[in-house]
Structure formats: structure tokens, C-alpha cells
Nucleic acid binder design. Structure first.
Lengths: 225, 225
DNA sequence: TCAAAAGTGTTAGATTTACACCCATGA
DNA sequence: TCATGGGTGTAAATCTAACACTTTTGA
């Protein structure tokens, strides 16, 4: 192999995943206890090293798939974290990604296998290395994005009630929303379609189920919640 | 040295800088012809490799300093670019940064030394590798940020007229702004202070010069342009 | 005296917010 | 029959957008 760039130093590159889920009215992330040295036993994001023949996005997808069994997970890059001493073991530059999954789709056996837990973002422990900073940045980016792009649907089942959707926004943004105003805005979004199905699981009366119509969104892709 | 992480593959990591400047009423970036193989002679961002004992932010600062002679340049990370074949020479993961500088502060001799040119963002050539994508993302991020945070001042001299500031916003966001509405909004921002100095260089009548008061901003750090 | 940029307020329309009651149902 | 969550409209306040003329001064 021709080396064009002489002897510049090479470093380990990893990806770390902030996996968001919406459960019990709270926004949570999936974290576990680190099972290698250094830092064994500390709370940590789940991650993995980028191998020589995969892109960083591929690496993130691979890690997410290992962890959840799911493919085509909605995922966005948070950024690169590269302080020299960020990892006490060895120099590692890490690229953080956040992902949104529907908790109900998530395979419980994999959760146990990896020893992971859903922890509310309001109740996060101190984590390994700079992982708290990664989560902070991911959350900030996701909050901004969820108000302008239809990504909330990745956190919900395919069919959802307006109350569920509202609770989700409240959990993500950390503030209550007026029910009537919220529904008014949803009505203006033609890409959130009312179905004729009714969910009776959370009230006696039952609530209409809605779904996201991607095609309709692509035609008129603008909103502000 | 203890190796904790076994034999995962290591890769070259570089930083690439998108240096924005405001000149002749246009938003421009500083690019040059690549002076190494592969891709010699192609238009390219200026970059450099991250060395073993510096953080990625330090690397970006070093590269920016080499290029401009300036320190403490306003700079933000755009993100990591890590397709396997993004660099035809060898696997390189690159972290893009954008920076804002005042063109007038910029040392012309360094510009010539590095063979760089200011090119309007409306008139960008095809560039090496994924550099056009980096610029696109940087621009998008910077546009969003400039409407909510006082970063425009990094592109202007310490003292500036409201017309200059307005032209800057127009150049960055790519759309005209109503002069009276613009000035009304500026008046509401207590951290943009009118001085008693007058600039006569661009009109017979002269225009008041303003300056950014960081301290006042930190007290009341909110606006939306 | 005139060209060229600086500076200045008002009003209509649109958007946002606050707010309270009836409905349907199963237990 | 009642407790629970589902569903609905209006009015005041705020914000946004459109718009045109006077001022100053050097050439």
C-alpha cells in the first residue's frame, strides 16, 4: 500500500451511542455498567471501535444493531470528542451519535444480555469519561430538531394518540404544553393523519390513533411546534 | 505503555477548516489549491493532521493559527466525516471546523504564502473529496447560530456601522432584510452599543459606529433576529 | 444642487397565548 | 353515577411585516 501521508500518528476512533426512548412519560437513555478496564463498573454509554473498512456511520449502525437487534434506526451524529486524556486507557477519539427508538420494539433479552437500563434524562448518574457531556449535547440537538422535523415518530409506535405525542414533546422539551394549542398546531400539519382506529388502553372513552404520513410530509416539509 | 484496547485498527485523523470572512458585501471562505498528492491542484479546504498529544480542538486552533497568524479565533466544530474512501490516498477521518475572522485582521503575506483565496460562498468551485459537503454543513450551522447568538461580531471590525451589520446578515442568510425592522430589533439588543464615533468612509453624511458589549450580552443573553 | 447613504414610526395582519367546559365510557 | 382521560373555540395580546420620506454632506 502506498502511504501518501508519511508517518503521522494514528489513533483509535470509537463511536458512542446515546439511545433515546420514551417510556412511562419520560425521555430515557439506555446505559449500562462498563465491562472493561479502565473504568470497569462505571455507568457508560454503549459504544464500539470503528474498524478499518467501515465508515463512522456504518460503525454507529453496527453498534446500534448489536445493541437493539434493530436496523434502520433513526440516528444523527452529535460530534467528535477528542481531548487527549478523555479516555484513561489510551488515546481514543470518539464520535457520538444519538438514536431514537421505540421502546416497545426493543428486545428485552438483548437489554439483559448487555446489562443495560433505561434511565430518565432527569436522573442521570455520573458517567464514564465525557459521556455526560455527549448526552448533554445530544439532548440539545435533539430538542431543537424535534421542533422542526418529524422525528418524534421514531420514539412512538406507528399508531399513537395525540396525548401520547403531547406527553412526548413535554418530556423531551421539559415543559408543559397547552392541550388545545398543541392540538391546533397538529391539525395544521397535514402529515399527521387521523386514522379511524381507537386506542382504549389509557381511557374509558378511547382516543383516536394517528399516524405519520411521510409522503405528505415530503410534499410540505415545514412546521414549527 | 499498557494497551487496554488490544489491536483495534487505528486511523489518521485530520481537521479541516472552513474559514469564513465578510468582504465586499459577500460571505467568503478561504480556500486554496491542494499542494500534495493525491488530488494535487484541486481546490481544497486548509487542514492538518491531529497529532498524538493534542486534542482535536487544539489541532484546529493550531491549523487556524498557522494559516492566519491569529489566536483565539472563534471556532466551532461542524462534525466528523468518516466515509472509508473519502480520501483517495489513505483512510483519514476528518473533523471539520468553521471559523469566523475579520478579513481586515488577516495577514496578506500568509495568504500568499499558503496560496489561498477568498471565494464567495455563492461561487464555490468543486473541491477535493467531501469538502463541499463540509462547507454546506458549516454554512447551515453558522446561519442558524448567527440568528440566536452574537457571533457576527467576529466577522466585523470592533467598531461597525448598522449598515455593515445588516449587509453581513443579508450575505450570511442569503436574503434581504428591511432596514427599519432590522434597526428596530438591534435597538432592543442592549448589548449592541452605539458609540459617539462616526464612520465617514462609506457615505458623505457618516454613520454612527457601534460595538458589541460582551458583558451586557452575558447579562441578558437572548435574542432572535 | 444633487447624488448617495443614514436615519426614523406607524399600521394592518398574523401569530401566539391563555383559558374552561362537555363528552364518552367502563367500572 | 361517577371518575377518568378525550376532545373542542374564542378573544386579547404580542409579534411581524410592509411601507416612504427627510437628513446630511462632499463633490
Amino acid at each position: 500500500m502506498t502511504t501518501y501521508y508519511g508517518e503521522y500518528s494514528k489513533v483509535l476512533v470509537s463511536v458512542d451511542c446515546i439511545i433515546f426512548g420514551f417510556d412511562e412519560g419520560e425521555l430515557k437513555i439506555l446505559i449500562g455498567r462498563r465491562n472493561m478496564d479502565p473504568g470497569r463498573g462505571l455507568w457508560s454509554l454503549y459504544g464500539g471501535f470503528v474498524s478499518g473498512n467501515e465508515s463512522i456511520d456504518d460503525a454507529a449502525n453496527r453498534v446500534l444493531n448489536q445493541l437493539t437487534g434493530l436496523s434502520n434506526i433513526y440516528m444523527r451524529q452529535v460530534g467528535a470528542f477528542g481531548n487527549v486524556d478523555r479516555d484513561p486507557g489510551e488515546r481514543v477519539i470518539s464520535i457520538a451519535y444519538y438514536a431514537l427508538i421505540n421502546v416497545k420494539d426493543y428486545d428485552r433479552s438483548l437489554q439483559e444480555k448487555h446489562g443495560l437500563q433505561w434511565i430518565s434524562i432527569n436522573d442521570l448518574p455520573q458517567m464514564y469519561s465525557d459521556h455526560n457531556i455527549m448526552v448533554g449535547k445530544a439532548l440539545k440537538m435533539m430538542r431543537r430538531k424535534i421542533s422542526h422535523e418529524p422525528i418524534s415518530f421514531n420514539l412512538l409506535p406507528e399508531l399513537f394518540t395525540l396525548t401520547q405525542l403531547q406527553k412526548l414533546y413535554e418530556a423531551v422539551c421539559g415543559e408543559k404544553v397547552d392541550k388545545r394549542n398543541f392540538r391546533k398546531r397538529i391539525k395544521d400539519m397535514d402529515f399527521i393523519e387521523k386514522t379511524d382506529q381507537i386506542d382504549k388502553s389509557s381511557s374509558r372513552r378511547g382516543a383516536y390513533l394517528y399516524k405519520f404520513n411521510k409522503r405528505a410530509y415530503d410534499d410540505a416539509p415545514n412546521f414549527k411546534l
